[in-house]
């Protein structure tokens, strides 16, 4: 493994994705949804980052940008290449893009939609190998079988030629994990991979993901709406609100000492699976709206209990280090 610990595996700078609203063929869009607006973060080699936020905050879009399912409107996505140098892949195309595809993979939320119902488990897991032209048929078969066993689908030979509909949700998600790992990626974006699974199945998949990531030295971005899951899965957590990152810190620091008013409200709203613990809910007014052509001021201003004239007349606050790598974007803390 070409390891270089000084450099992050992945570095994102000024990442933006605007989606046009109401435009069409030969018709210019008038307004834009600022789905992801000026993100900046690093993920170290072998590290994990939990991306947390409510629906519509841009966390899934961020994941899709990192694996280049979307092309960013602006900004850079640096990722270490095989030589350990940072390469910007934000606007890659063609053959060099295909090489980059070997380095990053994604695991999707819905295990019923992420596997092609007409292809066998073998076809699905081997697809990256086939597309990238890696190995002979026999080698691929061996590799798929070995990985299926590793993700807990034993005996692999009995699973390889089944179809997705013959598998349970948990088993399907294991297949999706196998597909993501088959070409030895260095980075995986996992988009709520366990949110549709039942509790007794979910923990198995979560533990498996962590184990495999550790074993194979894969870094991951774990996208979730559930802070408790993010706490369990990730070393660091970043909170997003309407396309902006508002706070980022190591997991325990963020949960114990949240600084941004939104993070505080979010944490206080999470129900605790124990009636003996009572929590103090912090209420914030209003609801989430879509960030269509938002004003340049702090995105959270309309709902913020701390907001004042200064916030109203200044641009969205920059991410500032409050010590120990605890970044927060707020003028008032």
């Amino acid at each position: 493994m070409s390891n270089n610990n000084d450099k992050p595996l992945l570095r994102v700078q000024g990442l933006k994705k605007y989606f046009p609203v109401g435009g069409g063929f030969l018709r210019q869009a008038r307004s834009f949804i600022h789905a992801v607006d000026d993100l900046e973060f690093d993920i170290p080699m072998g590290g994990s980052l939990g991306l947390v936020g409510e629906s519509g905050c841009g966390k899934t879009t961020t994941g899709k940008l990192l694996v280049r399912l979307h092309e960013p409107t602006d900004g850079q996505i640096f990722i270490q290449n095989e030589q350990g140098e940072l390469e910007d892949i934000a606007h890659r195309k063609g053959e060099s893009m295909k090489t980059f595809r070997r380095r990053v993979q994604m695991i999707f939320q819905d295990p019923y939609e992420s596997l092609n119902p007409r292809r066998t488990i073998y076809d699905t897991v081997a697809e990256p190998l086939v597309v990238q032209g890696i190995g002979t048929i026999v080698e691929r078969e061996e590799r798929v079988a070995a990985l299926l066993e590793r993700v807990g689908l034993t005996p692999a030979t009995s699973f390889m030629f089944r179809f997705p509909h013959e598998l349970s949700g948990g088993q399907r998600q294991r297949v999706a994990i196998a597909r993501a790992l088959i070409i030895d990626p260095v980075f995986i974006a996992a988009d709520e991979p366990t949110s549709m699974l039942d509790v007794s199945i979910r923990t198995g998949v979560m533990n498996l993901m962590m184990e495999l990531a550790g074993e194979m030295g894969v870094s991951y971005l774990y996208i979730t709406h559930d802070l408790a899951v993010a706490r369990y899965m990730c070393e660091r957590i970043a909170v997003m609100y309407l396309g902006k990152m508002v706070e980022r810190a190591s997991t325990e620091e963020l949960l114990a000492n949240p600084l941004h008013p939104y993070t505080r409200a979010l944490i206080s709203a999470v129900p605790v699976p124990d009636p003996r613990i009572s929590r103090q809910a912090i209420d914030i007014k209003g609801g989430v709206s879509a960030p269509i052509d938002p004003p340049p001021i702090c995105r959270f201003f309309a709902r913020c209990p701390l907001g004042d004239d200064f916030c109203e007349n200044n641009p969205h606050p920059p991410m500032e280090d409050k010590g120990g790598g605890h970044y927060v974007a707020c003028y008032k803390v």
């Binding site: 007794s200 923990t203 979560m206 699976p273």
Partner: peptide, 21 residues
């Protein structure tokens, strides 16, 4: 079931997995 639920409060503990489905 209780050991399988992560929580944001209290000690972080290993989540227990039930075998099978």
């Amino acid at each position: 079931l209780m050991r399988a639920f992560p929580s944001i409060k209290g000690e972080k503990h290993e989540l227990v997995t039930l075998p099978g489905e």
